[in-house]
Write a protein that binds this DNA or RNA. Sequence first.
RNA 1: GCGCCCGUAGCUCAACUGGAUAGAGCGCUGGCCUCCGGAGCCAGAGGUUGCAGGUUCGAAUCCUGCCGGGCGUGCCA
Length: 608
Amino acid sequence: MVLISEALRRAYERAFPDAEGDGFDPLVTPSRRAELGDYQSNCAMPLGKRLRMAPREVAARLIEHLDPGDLLEAVGEGNIAGPGFINLRLRGDALARLLVEMDTAGLGVGEPDHPETVVVDLVGVNLAKQMHVGHLRSTIIGDAISRLFARLGHRVIRQNHVGDWGLPIAMVTAKVMELRDAGAIDLDRLTLDDLDRLYRQAQSECAADTRGLEAARRYGLGPKAIAELEEQVAGAEAALKRAKQTLIDLQARRASTMEVWRRISEITMRECLAICHELNVEISEADSAGESSYAEELGPMVEDLLARGVAEVDDGAVVVRVEGFEQPCLIRKSDGGFLYATTDIAAIRRRVQEMGADEVVYCVDARQSLHFDLVFGAARKAGYATRPGHDHPSRLRHAAFGMVLGEDHRPFRTRSGENVRLRALLDEALARARGVVRAKNPGIDEASCEEIARGVAVAAMRHADLSNDRVKDYVFSFERMLAFEGNTGPYLQYALVRVRKILAEAEQRGMSTGGAIHIEDASERALALTLLRYPGTLVGACEALEPHRVVGYLYDLATVFSTFYDRCHVLHAEDERVRSSRLRLCRVFERVLADGLGVLGIPALARM
RNA sequence: GCGCCCGUAGCUCAACUGGAUAGAGCGCUGGCCUCCGGAGCCAGAGGUUGCAGGUUCGAAUCCUGCCGGGCGUGCCA
């Protein structure tokens, strides 16, 4: 496509020597319909407007000056269609040559002109809480986007912005300390399930039912009811007081409190990383940067912003006004406390100014978009988004995603209305995958079944999440993602297994897979053209932060291969020349598919 | 009230950033196993892209206004 664009550019310069050359865009895209050509250029229409000429005439002059070289089949009037589309077809030998050139470790993906440092914000778990569906998309999309940037040669730093600070965490810490002191729990045996329960218990204990009490008084409910409510409110106030004291202790890094907090953190993070590992998400302990790690910076940062006039006091609180938004970004409450926006601004400062991010990508729920607009605006206004020595702020982007819905199209919940735990989701996917694997492979041994089922379950879940347009909500369905027909993870895995089987067989028989390629059958041509689209697809997906483009591409690729596989025998090809060409095609396909699955974090299986 | 997002086949989703006749899978109809794994391939039916205007050679895509749905909207994170 690049070569075709270049050829068109040269044609343009020859055809219109008087026109200024800088504004020319060849507008080359793969043709949507194979019978018309391999590629099309749509440049004649806008050019006609600019040059005040009929688009078809522009197209004719371009064609006239277009040198097909050894790249394109002969061109003429017949290549012009409709209002001025230019349809082009690659020569078979050029197609073969391009494919061979692509058959390298990089698969046609070049080093970037300017390698960048990209910080990707993903996962975002909270201490003392189980991961649930709410974390699924951030984790999987964030991982895929990280892999994409890394694949294109950028330096990626993953950041798990753990919710490990603030009053809610203090509440559960206080609760754990209280129960430990009462001898009711043993810190060494505490599980995340326990913590999850205590978290919620602490939340409700601290929530005073003052409205209920007022209502009871107003409507004159019995003294017994009022007394009960008074007791509840008093209890809540006491619990809240303890939590606030615990928060103060945490902020002062008091050893005895920190010890408990650290234990809570360990328990949470161990499980979080275990689940990430099971989902084939590349993240480690070193990638965690909790809110607690910013705690000391917040006070001075707000003072800095006030001193420089970036922030102002309003109604007792400190705010940063952001141009274009009615509501300001609130960074300090009137009681002196900080908010999550404050931490997020501090995180931008660290990521850009200390880590050297040229771009920060936030893989966070779409509901936070206003929050990020404000935080990004405030950080830019403060100069925190600009790297030292640079004159432009780094790119701050919110890769917003929609919700996971149940099959009833309502937010995915358990029957009792709770968030579905990721652990439960994984377990069910695994159980269903086992069932299917066993059904497809009667008599398979236990260990193999388990191994394949794990790979299939992860592929199904990751693919389901990554195959939809990121910003839209999507309907979660085990049924569909494990159906193994159509655009699913297992289908892509299967395509890889099939081609690998052929390559392994060829190798065993001592056949060459590195021979020359001869494109003859239409299905070979379609496969070759699709393979060539790979590098461009990765670049486009990365620019748009849209992994689903890679998924869509791989599905196209796999179906095109399936057609080829059906029409063209490889191992039983008519002769040695054809066989070795097809084996080479298989090899390029295998490399691209495996590479693409790697970008998506979908495990490749040896057999299924 | 204001702001953001989403409305595409019966269902679940695409459409390469404005291109030609809007494509897949499921489901439905009908073909293809003496050959590399049928978790497959081929064909058919199924559409006023929520509605109405506008921009232009050309709109699912951009603009305006409606209609539906979701989510946010200064002292929770």
